[in-house]
Design a protein around this nucleic acid. Structure first.
Lengths: 125, 125, 125, 125
DNA sequence: GTGGTCTAGACCACT
DNA sequence: GTGGTCTAGACCACA
């Protein structure tokens, strides 16, 4: 089971952080279609946030068809393999990169610097 | 004179976009120390946003010593060359890269993909 | 014997799906008054749901006099031909149609389109 | 401006009813891309529900790209013309019809009866 | 003023 | 026990 963590300083809404961690877990294969997620209540207790906050995160992912909730049973990773067709994936990547470039650019960083930095950076939560 | 533009879709607050564009103009040398900025009122009209929004952006840059406001005259690019010491600049770059990696990671993108994409992307507003 | 099936995706509660399938079986004549239904336990195993879920469905149909439970023997299709008086049947039909129209309407479908579609659709579980 | 109404008896969640009415307003052309919706607070007062309930409805539609919210400004009908390509629309229609047939079928209603009823029914809230 | 997030606590429907 | 909905009230960020 994946360990959830919240960053209380980042300013990123808790529910967004939860969403990101679930997406990440799926993207890396730590969670597979059909796997059961922690219950809303359990995760709320674990993260010391309100039940509604976790619920909101799960709900958003459900709307996006990433999760499936069964009342009275639990919440599961969607079995409808979210067909991220290659085109959409590419678009997402481009959008993220564009945002990144805009921000970095406004500080006067050059693309080469950024690529250098990225190459040396390890993702740490 | 630099042409300001706002992206209404990005979700980035207007005042932040204005700040970024001013920083960018300075970073690229389009604006030099002592240059006068558009008045708050003029920019607000041009961008079709509230006076307070532009004001907030200018204020924040003043605090950062990037701009200097002169009562009754206008707002100017700071003449005290903002000594961005290298360490701080490095930190900023790292922070931006880390954020970027976290986001991309949550979608399952690999560093290599991102670098590829960045290499091929031109910054366009 | 009728083969029960649950749709895990529809969002329709399991107990409701069971009720509907039994009603359907009776309506189409596949089950006749006096026929014995699978035991609660057997059906629960077959459908891989909780005992209580099947139990709830049978209970509701008992209340509606559609089924009759005999202590220690089993559950049977009601022998008292449930006299659905015409008026009530008509009301039910209208209620269902109204719901349907509301939903379809909110998506901008026209009545004619719906009727067209219905004419061409075969009911498949 | 469209008049919102809640049905307190239907059992359909308030936030869902709000969503449906907005979708309906868009589908029928009463609302056009760029139009501003009532503020969260205003609608909450009008419908006598909690602010969060309205907020939830707006949020869901925002996730679905039907609405666009600008903090501090208001909520608007999405300008990215939601390209309901014909195929998707057809699928939705089929899904709705299938549900309808399943329910009606379980009560022993025939397709002809239903079409008759539909032809005679006017949608009334 | 606008929307966004969160808490605490309640009640309901389903398994 | 599970998830779903809702209220009341609070505080924040933005225009």
């Amino acid at each position: 089971m994946i360990e959830f963590r919240l960053d209380h300083r980042s300013g990123v809404p808790y529910y967004r952080q939860i969403i990101d961690q679930i997406r990440h877990g799926i993207a890396t294969g730590e969670w597979k279609p059909g796997d059961q997620l922690p219950t809303v209540r359990a995760l709320a207790v674990q993260l010391k946030v309100n039940l509604n906050t976790v619920s909101k995160a799960y709900k958003e992912l459900e709307i996006q068809k990433v999760l499936e909730a069964q009342q009275g049973t639990g919440t599961f990773i969607g079995t409808i393999k979210v067909e991220i067709d290659e085109k959409e994936r590419k678009n997402k990547l481009q959008a993220i990169c564009k945002d990144f470039l805009n921000v970095a650019d406004s500080y006067g960083f050059k693309v080469e610097e950024m690529i250098d930095e990225l190459s040396n950076t390890k993702h740490t939560e």
